[in-house]
């Protein structure tokens, strides 16, 4: 199902949470809403779910206007950060809830509900735990139950609000893979909110990046990383070194840092990813302050002659012998330039 969000606006008190957001989500897509806290990503998700209603704009599911339809009629599955399980019900009852509350004529037979619950328990790899209560499960298991509960009603859309936010790093990684597998198995259009760019880039087909209530860029993980549309996207997605300076005669200059660029003259902000910095004899100088080896990569913290801290990552073979106190000469493989107004 296609979800269309058209110029949606939402205010909380006098503070705007969303300002004219438009977004099209393709059927079967796995989309991430990525942004810092307060960027409006959760508000947008809740508006899609029908838990919040916009002041202006429209939400359509397959050209059917659902802007003011209640959550109950939208047939969306929603997964909350804090699981929001029903504590007084067993896992099986939790999962069956969406089917149990249906009117008698729409409700599947008992045996069929039980079978569906068993299937879903298998899907989220919790087979045999249907009789437990949520309090008897770990955080990761609870979130799996929440996922199964949301899927039980065969939703047209699955919405997840920071689904892995309350879990530790290992569980988060494995659940991420799981979500991808479940998405592939069910093919349901899925939107999830996260502030973790690594999670968004790793998991999503496309990423929508929000900042201060507006969408800055929508694209595949590779697009937003390699061709950031704004200074915000560039600095939010992935590590960068930021330089505020000016371009003149094909060179960007910021203090002692000088980089070759292909751009008209004028004040600019330049971003260079740590792995885009390379050792080059004609480059600018930087003194190494700290060296850490992280697997195949060496992370270097250095200081330019104009006292700016920068980060460099070099492949081990490339780096050769490097020590604190040494001076490197650096050039950039790739520079992202934006107007300073961004």
């Amino acid at each position: 199902m296609t979800i269309s969000i058209r110029s949606v606006e939402k205010q909380f008190a006098r503070y705007p949470a969303l300002r004219g957001v438009s977004l099209e989500v393709q059927p079967g897509e796995l989309l991430a809403l990525l942004g810092p806290s307060g960027s409006g990503k959760t508000t947008l998700l809740r508006i899609i779910a029908g838990l919040e209603f916009p002041e202006a704009g429209q939400v359509a599911f397959d050209d059917q206007d659902v802007t003011f339809a209640s959550a109950a009629v939208r047939k969306v599955g929603f997964v909350f950060q804090q699981y929001a399980l029903f504590r007084h019900m067993t896992v099986a009852k939790n999962i069956a809830f969406g089917l149990d509350v249906r009117k008698a004529k729409d409700r599947p037979a008992r045996a069929e509900i039980n079978r569906r619950v068993e299937d879903l328990l298998g899907l989220v790899e919790l087979g045999g735990l249907g009789g437990r209560y949520p309090a008897q499960l770990s955080g990761g298991q609870r979130q799996r139950v929440a996922l199964a509960r949301a899927l039980a009603v065969s939703p047209q859309v699955l919405l997840l609000d920071e689904p892995f936010g309350a879990l530790d790093a290992t569980v988060r990684k494995s659940l991420r893979k799981e979500l991808r597998r479940i998405h592939n198995a069910t093919g349901v259009t899925t939107i999830f909110v996260t502030h973790d760019q690594e999670e968004a880039l790793d998991l999503a087909d496309r990423v929508a990046i929000l900042n201060q209530g507006s969408i800055e860029q929508v694209g595949t993980p590779q697009e937003v990383y390699d061709q950031p549309a704004s200074a915000f996207v560039c600095s939010f997605v992935g590590e960068t070194n930021r330089f505020d300076g000016a371009v003149s005669g094909g060179r960007f200059v910021c203090g002692s840092v000088s980089l070759a660029v292909d751009c008209a003259d004028g004040p600019k902000t330049a971003f260079v990813r740590p792995h885009d910095l390379v050792v080059a004899p004609e480059g600018f100088e930087a003194k190494i302050v700290r060296v850490t080896a992280q697997g195949p990569v060496i992370q270097i913290e250095a200081q330019t002659a104009s006292d700016q801290r920068i980060e460099i990552s070099l492949a081990r073979q490339e780096a050769g012998s490097i020590a604190v106190g040494q001076t490197l000469r650096l050039a950039a493989r790739k520079v992202h330039l934006f107007d300073p107004a961004d």
Binding site: A72, V76, F78, F80, A84
Partner: peptide, 25 residues
């Protein structure tokens, strides 16, 4: 409020939410 919203998104009406979720809790 999460729990009530979860019930609502699963299709439960106001009365169902009160009767099946809030009062038992």
């Amino acid at each position: 409020a999460d729990v009530e919203e979860a019930a609502a998104s699963l299709g439960a009406g106001r009365l169902s939410i009160i009767g099946r979720v809030i009062l038992p809790a």
